Simulated scan of single mutants.
Amino acid sequence: MSDNNKFFTDIHEITDNTIEGILIIEDGFIKHVNRSLIDILCYEDEKELIGNLAIGILIPTSKEKFIEYNSKIFQEISLLNKNADVIPAIIKIKDININNVSYKMVSILDLTEIKKNEKIVLEQSKLAAMGEMVSIIAHQWRQPLSAVGSIITTLKLKYNLKRIDLNTYDEKLTQINNYVQYMSNTIDHFRDFLIKDSKKDLVKIEEVVNNSYSLIKNSFDILGIKVNINSKESLNKIYLHKNDLTQVILNILNNAKDALVLNNISNPQITINFSQKESSFQIIEIEDNAGGINLNIIDKIFNPYFSTKEKKNGTGLGLYICKMIVEKYLNGEISVKNKKNGTSFIIKLFI
């Protein structure tokens, strides 16, 4: 038995007791695989894998994705198991040398359960947003319903007094129809938000932002918060999941609203700008004048369970979920910085 073969025989004692999968590759071919990875890939024995090309089970993402944990860089990939199922995973690759032969050792962590938990958190976040919007819709409908009731009462009174004329009748019916259309549009936007995106749509990001804001506009108007959405016709349409972006926009806008109210800003404003970097990416910048974020905590606001609000008013998951959605589902990046009078959130969406 050669020294290297003896090494691979001996290494089983170590690698078969690790949680993560271990793969050792020489010139692209699998030389060793531990028990954990065999189980992850649904194989019976390592003999089914030894000697095969590693690319048969390791599938890189269409765009390189790297994840940083404790200053160590991992790459996000997919695994292909024996049943041709795709398994999400992260890997760490290290070059090793055994008896002057170069190998690559790949440590692999199955992300299946983590991804499931992420989806649960996202759905819970969406349900929370839905509850808030139900309240907003109820408020938005109150005034139109009251107006429709008032118009009907007026028409009935004029009819009883025999003072109705066709012009007045037509005018009042038009007003009722306008209110009904407004209420119908509100429900349509709400319904669209609830529908789970099954495919990406070709859209202009300005339209998504405008539709997102229309869902909560009434609550901003009541508080006297002016929202300026500066659209740019020059932006190209891009493919994305509209509802994912809507969830991010709603979260950031509501956070800005809370900050403006909490800090009692006399002339509260939010400005949304758009820009495009050639054919590489588009940017949504959401800026408020709420006074900014303390520099001691600004680097932590995307961390899970970190909140600047009182415990009863914040879970600390809102911005963490925004970051997760942008990076994992919208192929983008999100960052924050302080500006002269407030905070600016920058969402970069790669085309």
Rank of each mutant, 00 (worst) to 15 (best):
S219F: 00
L145D: 04
V106D: 01
Y159G: 13
L155R: 04
L295G: 12
K199T: 07
I297H: 07
Q181N: 13
K226C: 10
K226D: 10
E76H: 11
G28R: 02
L235F: 04
I151Q: 08
G28A: 06
N99G: 07
M183G: 06
I55G: 09
P144F: 02
K162R: 13
K119I: 11
I164K: 01
I351Y: 03
N177H: 04
D192I: 04
L330F: 04
L250E: 02
S231D: 11
L253C: 08
L349K: 01
E207N: 15
L262Q: 14
I152K: 07
D10W: 04
I108A: 01
I38C: 03
K6W: 05
V227S: 01
L215N: 07
Y329G: 03
A128H: 08
I90N: 11
V86P: 03
Q175N: 11
K242F: 00
D192H: 05
D95M: 09
E207T: 12
N289W: 02
N99L: 05
K339Q: 10
L235S: 09
I22P: 00
E48N: 15
V106E: 00
G292W: 00
N341E: 15
I252T: 01
P88V: 01
A54T: 11
M133K: 11
N70K: 15
N243P: 04
R142G: 01
I30W: 00
N289R: 02
M105A: 14
E206K: 04
V148I: 13
L49M: 15
I216D: 02
G332C: 11
M324N: 14
G291C: 05
F7K: 08
L122R: 10
L41Y: 07
L223W: 00
E46N: 14
N160G: 14
K172V: 02
A138S: 11
S231W: 00
E333I: 14
N263K: 10
I216V: 10
I73P: 03
I301W: 04
K337G: 04
I252K: 03
F345W: 10
A290E: 00
S335N: 15
Y305H: 12
Q269L: 08
E113F: 03
S219Q: 08
L240V: 12
Y329N: 14
L37P: 05
I55T: 15
A54Y: 06
S344D: 09
K232C: 06
I229H: 02
I14K: 06
S266T: 10
E123I: 05
K104M: 09
Y213L: 06
I176H: 03
N218F: 00
N273G: 04
N303G: 02
I321W: 00
N264P: 01
Q75A: 08
I19W: 04
